[in-house]
């Protein structure tokens, strides 16, 4: 019976492909939210697997805060070019310029929260009825309660206390006009699973995940990347360190880890030895105990 065994990584892969195919079958205008981070890269890789040899039947949507690492954008454009994907960019700068949102002020100002408006506007503009996200349940306690198929009302809001029961692998994507779904194919993956899969399948990822020299400064117990729009407090000073990203998001809220890991194997060993979750390096989650739940209710990723 040995030949019928399946490893946990392959079982997770198979589950995610199943979910991606359900999305293509159940929705008319799905889109894949692509941030340039490893989770959305793996999600897109799985989508290519799910529909091979046909092209992925939905576009990539990038919500651009304008405060990106340059490497992310270069990587994104190369991937789009190489795989023939359709890319749609929703711009936070545009939302600010048109007065849809106001820029935060002060030292910890971030465009992370502003993304929600741009995201919902983009979904509405293109009439997307499903947005695929790379969120995982192990990331954060509010995410642990998230469904694979997560219903959003006509305001894009999540109602965590009134979620549809999700049994076996039967996904109910039925909705009324104006409502949409967020779907999370990687729900059951952990950070370690994602790295192991990247190693196993040799998936390309941005160089930011590997060690490099960068100008950084220390704030609130973490290293942040220096950038023209990052205002320094008088006591803070820029120094050059060997760092890498454990997650990739908006520069203003992505903590850099001091690390010399320069291969996937090194990263896996580092993750295995880590005593802090990857979202521990995200300033956006530290604003309050229910920061993630509150943002998700409003329509965040």
């Amino acid at each position: 019976m040995k030949k019928y065994n399946i490893t946990h990584i392959r079982e997770l892969e198979s589950e995610s492909i199943y979910v991606l195919r359900e999305v293509a079958a159940q929705f008319e205008r799905p889109a894949l939210l692509f941030s340039g981070g490893k989770d959305s890269i793996v999600m897109y890789y799985l989508a290519r697997k799910a529909f091979w040899p046909a092209k992925v039947p939905f576009p990539l949507v990038h919500i651009d805060t304008g405060h990106n690492f340059e490497e992310t954008i270069v990587f994104r454009d190369e991937l789009v070019e190489k795989t023939g994907a359709t890319l749609i960019v929703g711009s936070v700068q545009e939302s600010i310029d048109t007065g849809r949102v106001a820029e935060e002020k002060g030292y910890s100002a971030s465009r992370n929260l502003l993304q929600t408006t741009t995201l919902l506007d983009t979904i509405e503009k293109h009439k997307f009825d499903c947005a695929l996200g790379g969120g995982r349940r192990d990331e954060e306690k509010a995410r642990a309660k998230e469904r694979f198929f997560s219903h959003r009302d006509e305001f894009g809001q999540w109602d965590p206390k009134n979620q549809r029961p999700e049994l076996w692998n039967i996904f109910n994507g039925k909705k009324h006009v104006g409502e949409h779904f967020r779907v999370f194919p990687l729900s059951n993956w952990t950070e370690m699973d994602v790295w192991q899969y990247i190693l196993l399948e040799n998936v390309d990822i941005p160089s930011l995940y590997f060690t490099h020299k960068r100008e950084v400064f220390f704030r609130d117990n973490q290293w942040l990347a220096a950038a023209p729009f990052m205002k320094l407090k008088p006591t803070e000073k820029i120094e050059v360190r060997e760092v890498r990203c454990r997650t990739i998001g908006d520069i203003s809220c992505t903590g850099m880890a001091l690390s010399t890991a320069n291969s996937l194997e090194d990263i896996i060993l580092e993750v295995a030895a880590s005593r802090v979750t990857e979202r521990g390096s995200r300033a956006d989650d530290k604003r309050s105990e229910s920061a993630m739940e509150d943002r998700k209710k409003e329509g965040y990723f």
């Binding site: 642990a144 952990t190 370690m192 739940e293």
Partner: peptide, 25 residues
């Protein structure tokens, strides 16, 4: 994980948790 659960001290919904040992996930 939900605010309402912490406030009321009860588990309302299904929560998924992950751990691994060298043998199984």
């Amino acid at each position: 994980g939900l605010k309402a659960e912490r406030e009321q001290g009860i588990t309302i919904d299904v929560a998924y948790r992950y751990f691994a040992t060298p043998k199984r996930k």
